[in-house]
Design a protein around this nucleic acid. Sequence first.
DNA 1: GTCTATACATCGATAGAC
DNA 2: GTCTATCGATGTATAGAC
Lengths: 209, 209
Amino acid sequence: MAEARDRRELILSTAAEMVARKGLRATTVRAIADAVGVFSGSLYHHFPSKDAIVEEVLARYLDAIRARYAVVLASGKDPAACLHELVVTSLEIAEEQPHATAIYQNESQYLRELPGFRGIQVAAADIQQTWLQVIDTGVADGSFRHDIPSWVFYRLIRDAVWLSIRWHRPDGPYSTQQLADDVTSLFLRGFAMPPATARAAVPTAASKA
Amino acid sequence: MAEARDRRELILSTAAEMVARKGLRATTVRAIADAVGVFSGSLYHHFPSKDAIVEEVLARYLDAIRARYAVVLASGKDPAACLHELVVTSLEIAEEQPHATAIYQNESQYLRELPGFRGIQVAAADIQQTWLQVIDTGVADGSFRHDIPSWVFYRLIRDAVWLSIRWHRPDGPYSTQQLADDVTSLFLRGFAMPPATARAAVPTAASKA
DNA sequence: GTCTATACATCGATAGAC
DNA sequence: GTCTATCGATGTATAGAC
């Protein structure tokens, strides 16, 4: 029985790795089966379809994000500190689950046509709400700027953070910790409410309406 | 003859639109031919393969970026102004060629296996160099921070700018001009060398080494 | 330059022996 | 729970008539 679970897990992890590397449509059930060490027909004893494998990978992934975001939100820290924690947490998850992260980023078109897309959408909305809640709190208490829409700031920092898996190597000389610090430093300083004093040296570029 | 050119252009634009919307592998030559209004075999009179169609779309796209980036660089403005111009130009191109932009962002895995990938890579390196040159100039003259690696800053602003096509609607109430201004304002203030004075209110998050 | 017809490969998924 | 064998659909690309 433990062996059966392991086989199932092996299929999930193998499929995740291959789909992340080659793309969803480019990864065939035969290739997954070969990599696992079984014949393609055997996969259908564990899963009803190829799509079901991917759905389970993503469902677990999004649930993991939700659970860890909830911990950050419950810490009760101020918005700036919370934002830093969200960045750190996100980069940690991206490092722990690089394949699921890549799939979620790359296959949004395919995912939309999946039968279980509803569930994915619900989890994604929950994750987005966590960011927006933190940002809006900061805007409301005056620590964040209000001249840039909070949802715009969210999308900019979200893409900058999550898409870093396309270029950042966690085991390289530029550590994940360093990346998290730099991202936070850059975005927080850029989004912080200026101390009402000088705003010199930087062109605000407030051109036409 | 003009009709022949038009047919060719129609195939290119139709394919670009469909591939951007549904994905490269999900878009069949039959579907492209149907949308154009011919039979699938007829496409092969104009192009040797499906891949060749996509390659031509991307080659033109990258060349357009290179040409317009060169104009920005030749303006001789200071780094901050150049950076703003690069953001504006990029968002304009994304608005003018949304399909090619989406394809280039989404199908990097598939592109790597294309016979003409070498040419794509060369153009991409050239584009990256333009950004890095501007950023490094600003770091060298003291207007930009030097505690965040310039290549890290490049990747963060690049992803934030180009990936905006996934959520930004140019014909909506939040204009492209506004987005360009906000992106520039956020990133330039975050990356600007602080006036040596106060850096208060914002936690620098400089944790462990 | 377009159409008809089809070759040839490969896909996801199934059925039944073991 | 895995393997053997294969079905039916669908993919890219080609050949030759018009």
